[in-house]
Amino acid sequence: MSVISVKNLSKSFKVKQKEKGFIGSVKSIIQPNYKVIKAVNDISFQVDEGEVVAFIGPNGAGKSTTIKMLTGILYPDSGHIDVLGIDPTKARKKLAYEIGTVFGQKEQLWMHLTAYDNFKFFSAIYDIPEKEAEKRIEELSKLFDLEKFINTPVRNLSLGQRVRCEFVASLIHKPKVLFLDEPTIGLDPVVKENVRKLIKKMNKEYHTTIFLTSHDISDIEKLCKRVIIINDGTIVMDDSMSNLKYHYMDKKIIEVKLKSKINFNNVKGIKVLKEKENNSRLEINTNETNLTTILKFINPENIIDINISNIPLEEIISAIYRKE
């Protein structure tokens, strides 16, 4: 059953243009010049209940604008949005009871209050009765391991602890869909890994549908089974993670350390990515050649060390961004 349905959604922004320098500033007052930027251009997609979907794209691709339209922050110019059977443009408040949001760049917690007081405040926002709120805070504190610092003012918490509290504040009303806009931005690798585990846990324990944007490929690789890629406001790919990797299976990366140097340039099916003394990093196109031929060409006797791997997901996604 689909919980998010988007049809022909578009949104433009009018951005003031200014010539450089002081004269440019004066000119822009007398004769302002505007440029219309199509942030989201006629996109359509659906998300099913319980799915964890990555909605990714380069900076300025239209990710945040789309999420903001789905959550009722922005009004679309045209198109139709349906989240849990609710149109955000017509029933924003009704929708807010059903969804949760974590914007990595915008903290919603009060810094001077303790985490516990913040959760009580959010319970009041979502009209949760006192007793139920207490129970929910206790349950989430255990799940997110907050017990040690729940009574500490948020300003005194580490970034990782704060992010965990942000998640709890967003989950206090048991949302059916969670929108995460770069939730791991600025976090160290250990905290990132913890946050990912928590997202997985939420999806598994509460069957929460998760719609995630992130520039961190590991977030996507470790959390999502489906990827929607947006670029210049249009969807350029909507596929499962396994299919995404499969499409690029015709390319392999070979990192090899040799006893004596070989010239790989102009060899069919080989693209030299990096070369330093007897070490080479090569991209092999398996449609033009095969690994056996390459290994024979190198000569196993000449190999000190070798590593054969798939193209990293980061490079696959970068290639899609570059429309290659």
Binding site: K68, T71, G72, I73, R92, K93, K94, A96, Y97, I99, T101, F103, K106, Q108, I125, Y126, D127
Partner: peptide, 12 residues
């Protein structure tokens, strides 16, 4: 400065 976002996602 886009500070209305956090109020727009609340049911109030």
């Amino acid at each position: 400065n886009g500070k209305l976002d956090s109020f727009l996602v609340q049911p109030k």
